[in-house]
């Protein structure tokens, strides 16, 4: 059984948001409901301003705090692949998982739109779904949080479960440049123009993701929380560059 993980090279990422757009199209996300996002930060004041960006999918943690918070096992760790998924048939919409996620990757369906206008009113949902976009991807697996969610549940990145879970057995990496794995590569990885993203089996010593983590000293985000993400960042040996949300006090 693979344990899928992602490596994101921050020295390559240009913040172009192609990954965000591809994810939204692949998974029929509402505007603003970005399962995968590139977050922008700025520090300092004009003229000494430093702008940073930071790509952030779900970390699919090894020891996820969201799973421990969910009272119904709707959020669960899939041993086959190491995904953290949501069973929409069990989700009660208590949002405890959202409160317990250190990375802000979860979204509740029924609330004011994050981005106006509210396209749900333009394309109202059918069959209990929250909306019915003009183009709808064919995948639909509510027990794994794949597809368009019903009302009253939480959704998040699935590592493109519908693509990656059907990868050939034993393969070490899912690479868009390899014809055998191209269609099984997550949308955000496949479209990344500078090839800043890599996706592979963390349990396979021969995988490229493991080599990158070892050779370039990959680090995990907020490791002190104990979540142990399966997404690693390469940053030339430094930690992932996300500024503190505290304002700097002047001495």
């Amino acid at each position: 059984m693979a344990k899928w993980g992602m490596v994101i090279d921050l020295d390559k990422c240009t913040g172009c948001q192609a990954c965000t757009t591809a994810c939204a199209m692949e998974n029929n996300r509402l505007p603003g409901e970005n399962w995968q996002d590139v977050l922008f930060y700025h520090e300092g004041k004009y003229p000494n301003v430093n702008m940073k960006w930071f790509p952030r999918p779900c970390m699919h943690c090894e020891n996820p705090s969201c799973v421990s918070a969910c009272p119904t096992k709707a959020t669960y760790k899939d041993p086959d692949g190491g995904y953290v998924l949501i069973d929409w048939n069990k989700c009660i919409g208590c949002k405890a998982c959202m409160v317990a996620c250190p990375y802000g990757v979860r979204f509740y369906t029924d609330e004011k739109p994050l981005v106006q206008p509210d396209v749900r009113s333009v394309f109202p949902g059918k069959g209990g779904r929250t909306w019915d976009p003009p183009y709808r991807a064919p995948q639909d697996d509510p027990t794994r949080g794949v597809g368009i969610q019903p009302h009253g549940v939480v959704s998040k990145c699935t590592f493109c479960y519908h693509k990656t879970s059907t990868a050939p057995k034993g393969v070490a990496d899912l690479d868009e440049d390899d014809p055998k794995t191209k269609e099984h590569t997550p949308a955000c990885v496949r479209v990344c123009p500078p090839k800043a993203r890599y996706f592979g089996d963390l349990d396979n010593p021969a995988s490229k993701v493991n080599k990158l983590i070892a050779d370039k000293r990959g680090v995990r985000l907020l490791d002190h929380t104990g979540n142990k993400p399966q997404v690693y960042y390469l940053s030339g040996g430094a930690g992932p560059a996300v500024p503190s949300s505290r304002e700097t006090n002047k001495a």
């Binding site: 969910c70 096992k73 069990k90 989700c91 009660i92 919409g93 208590c94 009253g152 549940v153």
Partner: peptide
């Protein structure tokens, strides 16, 4: 406040998520 309050009546006691304080 819950998204699916009726479901919570049976989903919480029947799924035995013993790791969750809310269970």
């Amino acid at each position: 406040e819950l998204g699916n309050p009726i479901r919570s009546l049976y989903a919480i006691p029947l799924n035995f998520q013993v790791k969750a304080p809310l269970f």
